[in-house]
Design a protein around this nucleic acid. Structure first.
Lengths: 146, 146
DNA sequence: GCCCATTGCTATCCCCGATAGCTGTCCATA
DNA sequence: TATGGACAGCTATCGGGGATAGCAATGGGC
């Protein structure tokens, strides 16, 4: 690591590296739930929004419709999520009792995970991050559809 | 997008989403170079550090030795990078003339890409990001080896 | 009633990263 | 000086996440 690296002064690079570190930590924290991060976030969104549809979850989490399919399938196989036909096209998603239990567990794990990182930062910095990061995200609203 | 999403108040989630947006933008900007982001960053690190080794680049960019191999191979196939045997184990990497040209082009593209996002943020916010993001990254130094 | 948008889905691709384990080389030291 | 361990590069393979193209069935507006 004796090399110079001008990328260190690039926002995109820093975001990517920092995000990768947190993702790796999250994965470790979630490891023995046997759920991927994307499955957990899906579970939590459904927990918050009973009777939502698959595409709504996808829009919320920026996951394409096509990529939602295996996520929901796996959550249903595991009996964490169930769905009820709404009309010929859409389903209303909700958690099973087991799903609620796992969701609560996952929440606790995410809390611990987040706490580990938040304690490194001042409250002012944290506030700034929660202002800046969504601003960065919003930059793309004008172009992409997701 | 009418759903509530408690993940919005999670640092890891915000980092991931913001990073994804910037990566997508970068990919578009680099598209007609026909180089993946990982290849471009490798190219730039070699440009800055002539005669560095493959594992050094990997350590700098947090890319495992095994995953550096196809990156370097492709850069050499494209005649952007050349290497000279140092001893029986290691090579000294450097850019070809073509590599220098492409690296300069890539730099310009990254500059434009970065500028698009930096202009959304105040200089104070940017300074804070360049303080906080490395701090988040450093949180893992005690555990992982990379 | 018809056309178009929407929902869920299949199939397939790409990028990035991780792991395990191999070969050949070097270097320290016993 | 012989040897064991560290190191560089490499192979093979897996996993996670995301993208695209296109299909079938359905719903709703005109």
């Amino acid at each position: 690591m004796t090399l110079t690296n001008a990328l260190e002064s690039r926002l995109g690079y820093q975001l990517r590296r920092a995000s990768a570190v947190m993702m790796a930590d999250l994965s470790r924290e979630l490891a023995d739930l046997d759920l991927r991060p994307a499955e957990v976030t899906t579970l939590l969104v459904i927990a918050e929004n009973p009777d939502c549809s698959q595409t709504e979850v996808g829009q919320t989490l920026a996951i394409k419709r096509a990529n939602m399919v295996p996520i929901i399938s796996r959550l249903m196989e595991r009996d964490l999520v169930e769905r009820r036909r709404l009309d010929g096209r859409s389903h209303a998603l909700s958690l099973t009792d087991a799903g609620r239990t796992v969701a609560a567990d996952a929440q606790a794990r995410i809390d611990r995970h987040e706490a580990r990182f938040l304690e490194l930062l001042g409250t002012k910095d944290v506030a700034m991050l929660f202002r800046c990061l969504p601003a960065i995200r919003a930059a793309r609203e004008a172009e992409a559809d997701i």
